[in-house]
Structures are given as C-alpha cells and as structure tokens.
C-alpha cells in the first residue's frame, strides 16, 4: 500500500467520522431540548422524532463520500 492509498483511506475515515461527530453534537442538543418539551407535551413525540432525525443526513452524506473514496481506492487498486 503506497502513501496515497493510505491518505485516501484516512480521508474516508475522516469523512464519516467528522460527520458522525457533527451529527452527534446536533442530536445531543436537539435531544435534550426535545426531552424537555416531551415532559410538558407528550403529543409532540412525532415532531420531535423528526427534528432529532434531521441531522442524521450529515452522517449519511459523510458515509456517501467515504464510500465513494473507498470505491475509488478499489477501482484504482
């Protein structure tokens, strides 16, 4: 494995890892606010679930980029 391949692999890891961190941070903030709101209005469960799930797109996009890099690696290798 040459250094370029290694760097691409690190890039793929960073793409999904950093996106996951961002998602976790956003979900943490939304989750704590949502839990507070739910104690007062349990009927908001569905809406809060949607808001909680919104940042997950970030990690999915990160995953898409990582998958593209890995597929590029395989095609090149």
């Amino acid at each position: 494995m040459d250094i370029n391949t290694g760097l691409l692999a690190i890039g793929a890891g960073l793409a999904v890892g950093l996106a996951a961190l961002a998602t976790g941070w956003a979900q943490g903030r939304i989750g704590s606010a949502g839990a507070g709101a739910l104690t007062e209005k349990p009927e908001l469960f569905g809406s809060i679930l949607i808001m909680l799930a919104l940042p997950e797109t970030l990690v999915i996009l990160g995953f898409a980029v990582a998958a593209m890099i890995i597929l590029l690696l395989k095609a090149g290798g």
Binding site: E56, T57, I60, L61, F63, A64, A67
Partner: peptide, 12 residues
C-alpha cells in the same frame, strides 16, 4: 439530491 442520498441509510 440530499433527500435521495438520505436513502443510502437503507444500505449503510
């Protein structure tokens, strides 16, 4: 596009 990419989670 991000709406459709979101369905990648089904595989991921």
């Amino acid at each position: 596009i991000s709406n459709v990419l979101s369905y990648l989670r089904l595989a991921a």
